[in-house]
């Protein structure tokens, strides 16, 4: 199966007033598989929205290629099969929820009031469908946006900060909706800051900074390199000392030995050793790397180097990030 989205060496260059060229998007290469939920991450100004606009044909790349659903970005045929929910969407405020749905439907050539009403129902706006958009709350507007993005049964959905500014309940509703999309086999391209959402929802992510992809891959891959914590009882100090090597950290908590080791280490031989010493394996707990860690690793280094700390980091994380850099 072909890719839903692919970019090759995509550049978007603006000329600043001083005549310098600024690459908002720098040699961007993205591959989004069909049917996956793809997280597109990056700090403000990293070029996320610019990339989405290029993919939608709202603006044009300076060089490079961009393909959406096997067509060149901006192709009208592709637009029939995709939808887009912009960050902070605005609508014609004089129209009601239902009218705006019908308006967008007509842009697809769809004349189906029942469909519009059904979609509004799906986003819990059935009771407000005849109120003007100007009276909608922010969350309601976001939900109208989601509803309109489903009008054409899209194969590919672009969501720009879909949960931004929503209250917790709306937040969960939107998240669940996105998970439903996966079940329906839709490809979802999410640009977001909400790392916890992304970590929970997405299959694969790309992290960009200053227009460049710094990480791309499945979450499993990217977050690999976690630790295992093996807790055992009934083993002595000697056994413990034997385990100490490289980044194997051994400590005792009461009579329990706690071994902190890389998850690609030879955990079986450790367990066999414990059993051989007639000890008891209390638990083996994998401690996966968090997306937040990865994100900070990927983008913070550069910012810290410049003395700018855009992201709040824990004391524990900070030196780690710097060490890696």
């Amino acid at each position: 199966m072909s890719l839903a989205i692919e970019t090759r060496n995509l550049f978007k260059t603006y000329k600043s007033r001083g005549g310098q060229s600024i690459n908002v998007v720098h040699d961007l290469n993205l591959q989004v598989e069909r049917g996956e939920i793809f997280g597109f991450l990056g700090p403000n100004g990293a070029g996320k929205t610019t990339t989405i606009k290029i993919l939608l044909g709202i603006i044009y790349q300076t060089t490079g290629e961009a393909f959406v659903l096997d067509k060149e970005a901006g192709d009208i045929e592709a637009h029939r099969k995709l939808s887009y929910l912009p960050e902070k969407p605005y609508y014609y405020e004089h129209m009601t929820g239902l009218e705006i749905m019908e308006f967008y439907a007509s842009l697809f050539g769809i004349k189906d009031r029942a469909l519009c009403e059904r979609l509004l129902e799906r986003v819990n706006l059935a009771n407000d469908k005849n109120r003007a958009i100007s009276q909608y709350s922010k969350g309601m507007q976001q939900r109208v946006g989601l509803a309109q993005s489903l009008l054409n049964e899209p194969e590919l959905i672009f969501l720009d900060e879909p949960t931004g500014g929503l209250d917790p309940i709306a937040h969960i509703e939107v998240r669940d909706l996105i998970l439903q999309f996966r079940e329906e086999g839709k490809t979802v391209f999410i640009s977001s800051h909400e790392l916890s959402d992304v970590e929970r929802i997405c299959d694969r992510v790309a992290i960009i900074n200053k227009g460049e992809v710094v990480q791309q891959g499945s979450l499993d891959q990217l977050l690999a390199g976690g630790r295992l914590e093996v807790t055992a009882s009934g083993v002595d100090q000697g056994f413990a000392d034997a385990l100490k090597k490289d980044d194997y950290v051994v400590s005792f908590s009461g009579d329990r030995l706690i071994l902190d080791m890389p998850d690609d280490g030879d955990v079986n031989s450790v367990l066999e050793g414990v059993l051989a010493k007639k000890g008891t394996v209390v638990s083996v707990v994998p401690r996966r790397k968090r997306l937040e860690d990865l994100f900070l690793e990927s983008v913070a280094s550069d910012n810290v180097a410049k003395g700018r700390r855009l992201f709040k980091m824990t004391d524990k994380d900070a030196p780690q990030a710097e060490e890696k850099a």
């Binding site: 939608l56 044909g57 045929e77 637009h79 995709l82 887009y84 912009p86 605005y90």
Partner: peptide, 14 residues
């Protein structure tokens, strides 16, 4: 300015 154009141009509208 109101970004309504984005939703419209992302539809099959030339």
């Amino acid at each position: 300015e109101r970004r309504t154009i984005y939703t419209i141009l992302s539809k099959p509208v030339q």
